[in-house]
Amino acid sequence: MRHLTVDVLAPGALIAVEIGVGESLRRALIREGKPVPPAVQIDLLIDTGASRTSVDTSVMRTLGLEPRSATEYTDFSSKGLSKQTDVYVVELVLGGVGTGNTWRHDPLEVLTESFLNLPHQGLLGRDVINRGQLSYNGATRKCTLSYT
């Protein structure tokens, strides 16, 4: 089993990830002679209260992605009412590319929201967390994601 441990600081447990175009789109771009945008490194807040992973809208623009689905969601601002949002398909890599800790998720559906002026550019939700084990050491203020 592999492990990723992060400090739990004032904003919460932030984890560095790389987000890029998935393999299916990458092949289509190459086939059409278009450039493949490089992956973007961002920080996500590990959030067990989020059922799905979400990323700032600007990241999707940087990657040149188009939405491929839609869903309904609720959050604090929606006052119990569900709202519709675009869903994008990405490749999400935790643990760094080409390391012994690489944890790749492709295809992964992500929602988009605005994370303007926040220390993180998205939320790592239970759709990813559920694929591993998450533990929190309150004494050391460290959070560990374990996965195979």
Partner: peptide, 29 residues
């Protein structure tokens, strides 16, 4: 996704799991 990109290239298309999904819950500051 593979089939859609192979068939429609970069055109508009929509892919979704066939499920009675519950609304996604997001709680953050």
């Amino acid at each position: 996704l593979d089939w859609a990109y192979d068939t429609f290239g970069l055109d508009r298309f929509f892919v979704k799991e066939i499920t009675e999904e519950k609304p996604v819950m997001h709680f953050h500051r």
